[in-house]
Design a protein around this nucleic acid. Structure first.
Lengths: 365, 365
DNA sequence: TTGTATGCGTTATCAC
DNA sequence: GTGATAACGCATACAA
């Protein structure tokens, strides 16, 4: 069912239907407006995303770039963003960043293309990026090998890209060049949040009497775009208070690995030690490792998780952790998107990192 | 950069470019094929999704319908499907099903539209579905109020819809009517998997000596499209072995609630009791509730989780749980999609539910 | 106030 | 082998 059908049923032209359905209602008689809307609703007419995107130059999709990492609250985040997008008339397309291995050339490995006629092709590697140089009709064209994300953006012409972490500087440059808005506008917004998490953890541990702090990463093969900012915040806190810099460890979740990691940490640092953890699973692994090693929690070892799902409260001892209001944290994405497309939403207050994140005391600190 | 640019650079027509880039390479000279491909790569040309969708009648998007539920492995599932889609040239659009409250009419509440000229509009409720009847030029048009999903499908014309659970019979009927393939084709595929999970849990508990079984749902305000099939499998197992039907309980994750739920269960059923749980968090909540209530685990209470993330192995006691190979379970989706679009992929073996799911023994049973 | 004409990028059909 | 041309559904400048 197309706009022609609506137009025919309402007895007007397609143009009229299009204008009225795009809220250009001022120049038409109320009769016409109502009739067109009624007919559209009656037929269940929905504007075609394809036709719309084609003529407007960009689609109503927003690409969510998910970093290649263990993302503690993916469901909540995507759910919150989807709801926001939906209200603004956009749809979410999730895109998982994957390790660089999976970056094939567009259609054919360009390096294999021989000289044909006046076309000469070659490829070189500059700064670990493949650059294809093509000479066609004595014109030199340089192009970098497109990543999955680049191809998606070119094909989709999205209304925007949401960086959930792990977007490289090259990616941002490419998107800027393509005229595609990126939210949040700069990566520093996230570092603010991550700093806040690390700081909350460190402050709490220190307030509970721990002068030796440590930061515990999750030890898996994935990236960790958030951990570093949190560790750094702990480091800064220690420097500011004249404490020794935090020890850093990587913790596997399985018992043997967790025991080994904690044992080594204690051997090097002594105790008591207060450990700020990347997420709640790492924190749990350390809590139970401490129990197995006969270390008191709290007392010998204190543990603070972060980005709690719901598991922190389900276990004994209940985990001390950092919680946040996901939709509040994401509100600035919603606003930036609304603003970029002139929806002029009434500006809701955006919480500062300090307001959005809270330390939830448990029994492990 | 459009196909015209490529055509100009390669000295051919847009039609030639299009055909070659769609692998219709047989009818052209190798020279032309190479030149076109080289030029496309050099310019970084990517086919426009909009133009493509417009002319083909459907897009290269696949909608992932996520049920309104606590989805244990959402990241893994979406990641696996995205990777599959990517290889086949599709992109994932995630769509979260939300409770029915959020189902506004397309552009205007049709019931409010008055009689205008020859247009008469009214709406009635049939089987809890709003039906809008519109009379236009003495033609009666009936239409149901479109849900978010319906509107998305109409706008997007996706290549397919993946039902991750919670797609209603009406939804499936609508999608069939719209000519949009749904994967898996019938809802029973999932009930097979859910049955398998429940059965594995029940078998294991019985084998460990528990004759009194129970099924524990997660007590939150969300839907639970999977739980029932699992409970039923436990019920069937009990019937087959001549055991009493399983007690059913709903467990909050917070300590007080979990203690109360478990206390009540024990009061009604006595002990020992073996509890099959909806997910690992419920299982953990029960394990630690048992500890607080002074019940031995295992012994007084045995607990089996399911759909483990990674937390099961991080805690002590290590949780007995059901694990699965996500990408194996989703392989049939990939194949159905490939088949629907004649990609003729070599058919990989699809594991049966029994092969895909395994009981991982821990220390709670 | 409404209709007409055009263009967006891709693909299928047919003519050359 | 290759190139015109029309069509897909929508939005908009412009003509009526």
């Amino acid at each position: 069912v197309t706009s022609s059908d609506v137009a025919r049923l309402a007895g007007v032209s397609r143009a009229t239907v299009s204008l009225i359905l795009n809220e250009q209602t001022a120049r038409f008689s109320p009769d016409t407006v109502m009739r067109v809307r009624a007919c559209a609703a009656a037929l269940g007419y929905v504007r075609s995303a394809a036709g719309r995107a084609l003529v407007r130059g960009h689609s109503d999709f927003v690409v969510l770039v998910v970093p290649y990492t263990t993302f503690p609250k993916l469901q909540e985040v995507v759910e919150a963003l989807s709801a926001d997008f939906d209200e603004l008339g956009f749809s979410a397309v999730v895109h998982f960043n994957v390790p660089a291995a999976d970056t094939p050339a567009a259609h054919v490995p360009v390096a294999d293309v021989p000289v044909v006629g006046s076309t000469v092709v070659g490829s070189t590697v500059v700064n670990s990026t493949v650059v294809n140089s093509t000479v066609v009709n004595s014109t030199v064209v340089n192009s970098t090998a497109p990543s999955r994300l680049h191809r998606l953006v070119k094909a989709l012409r999205p209304a925007g890209v949401v960086d959930l972490g792990g977007l490289s500087a090259q990616d941002r440059a490419f998107l800027d060049g393509a005229g595609c808005p990126v939210f949040p506008r700069s990566g520093s917004d996230y570092s603010d949040y991550n700093s806040c998490i690390g700081l909350l953890q460190a402050e709490h541990l220190h307030a509970r009497g721990y002068d030796r702090l440590a930061y515990a990463y999750l030890s898996d093969s994935r990236d960790d775009p958030f951990g570093w900012g949190r560790e750094e915040a702990v480091t800064r806190f220690c420097a500011a208070r004249g404490l020794k810099p935090p020890a850093v460890t990587r913790v596997p979740l399985a018992p043997e690995g967790a025991d080994r990691a904690l044992g080594q940490l204690i051997a090097e640092q002594g105790r008591p030690v207060g450990i700020a953890c990347y997420n709640d699973e790492v924190a749990l692994a350390l809590v139970f490792a401490a129990q197995r090693l006969g270390l008191a929690v709290p007392g010998g070892v204190a543990v603070v998780g972060s980005e709690s799902g719901t598991v922190a409260q389900a276990v004994s001892p209940r985990l001390t952790t950092v919680v946040n209001d996901v939709s509040a944290v994401l509100r600035h994405v919603r606003q930036a998107l609304a603003q970029a497309y002139a929806d002029m939403a009434p500006p809701e207050p955006i919480p500062t990192p300090e307001e959005a994140y809270t330390l939830l005391p448990g029994e492990t600190s």
